[in-house]
Simulated assay, not measured.
Amino acid sequence: MKGANQGELAGNDPRLDGRGLSIGIVQARFNADITDALAQACKEELAALGVAADQIRHETVPGALEVPIALQAMAASRRYDALVALGCIVRGETYHFELVANESGASVSRIALDHSIPIANAILTTENMEQAVARQTDKGRDAARVAVEMARLLEQVRT
């Protein structure tokens, strides 16, 4: 965090105060160059928001279709305030793109609703690798911010 305190880094926005939160990350290894960059940006942003390194659990799975089962296990454990889904699906020449994109997206949403846990969905769906590269850092950071903000919102709603 380079000496700055968490409040400065979050722009003094209490919705982005990650201190005391526990976050689970599930990363697909398919298109690893992209998903590794997503994960790095996400973890760096979580740290900047005050989430302690020992409160971040980062697991990897083969691909986007395997992300939901790992998220489901994490959600069922009730150990996490929010979860993050990371992956990269690039359109190919067959219908497989639509299948993977639709099923992974629907499954992530269903798990969030079934378990009442925020899940920041940063499974990229792009036309080509250039689009994925252009989005990898910003979407990783965005996922961290969404996870923290939604964890704080649910915390407020539940109290």
Rank of each mutant, 00 (worst) to 15 (best):
G3Q: 12
A4H: 10
A4V: 14
N5Y: 10
N5V: 14
N5P: 06
G7H: 03
E8H: 04
E8N: 00
A10L: 07
A10I: 11
G11W: 12
G11Y: 08
G11S: 06
N12W: 15
N12Y: 15
N12S: 07
D13L: 10
D13F: 05
P14H: 02
R15D: 13
D17A: 03
D17W: 05
G18N: 05
L21P: 01
S22A: 12
I23N: 01
G24R: 01
I25N: 00
V26D: 00
Q27L: 06
A28M: 04
A28I: 06
N31L: 08
A32W: 10
I34F: 03
I34A: 00
T35G: 02
T35C: 04
T35I: 11
T35P: 06
L38A: 01
L38E: 02
L38H: 01
C42P: 02
K43G: 00
K43L: 14
K43Q: 15
E45T: 15
L46E: 09
A48H: 11
G50D: 09
G50E: 10
V51C: 06
A52Q: 12
A53P: 11
D54Y: 02
Q55H: 15
I56A: 00
I56F: 01
I56V: 15
R57E: 13
R57Q: 11
R57M: 10
E59R: 01
E59T: 11
V61W: 02
P62K: 01
A64Q: 01
E66V: 04
V67H: 01
V67M: 01
P68G: 03
P68L: 06
I69K: 00
I69Y: 09
A70S: 12
L71A: 03
Q72R: 10
A73Y: 09
A73F: 10
M74Q: 11
A76N: 08
S77M: 07
R78P: 00
Y80K: 00
Y80F: 15
A82S: 06
G87R: 05
G87Q: 06
G87E: 09
C88E: 02
I89K: 00
I89P: 02
V90K: 01
V90F: 04
R91N: 04
G92D: 08
T94G: 05
Y95F: 11
Y95G: 05
Y95M: 12
H96F: 07
H96S: 04
L99K: 04
V100R: 02
A101C: 12
N102A: 14
E103V: 13
E103Q: 14
S104D: 03
G105Q: 07
G105F: 11
A106Y: 09
A106M: 14
A106R: 13
A106N: 14
A106K: 14
S107W: 05
V108Y: 07
I111H: 03
I111G: 04
I111Q: 04
A112F: 09
A112N: 06
L113F: 13
D114S: 13
H115N: 12
S116N: 14
I117M: 03
P118T: 12
P118Q: 09
P118G: 14
I119G: 03
A120G: 13
A120N: 09
A120P: 09
N121E: 07
N121L: 08
N121C: 06
A122Y: 09
L124K: 00
L124T: 08
T125F: 06
T126Y: 10
T126S: 07
E127T: 15
N128S: 15
M129R: 09
E130C: 00
E130I: 14
A132F: 12
A132H: 05
A132K: 03
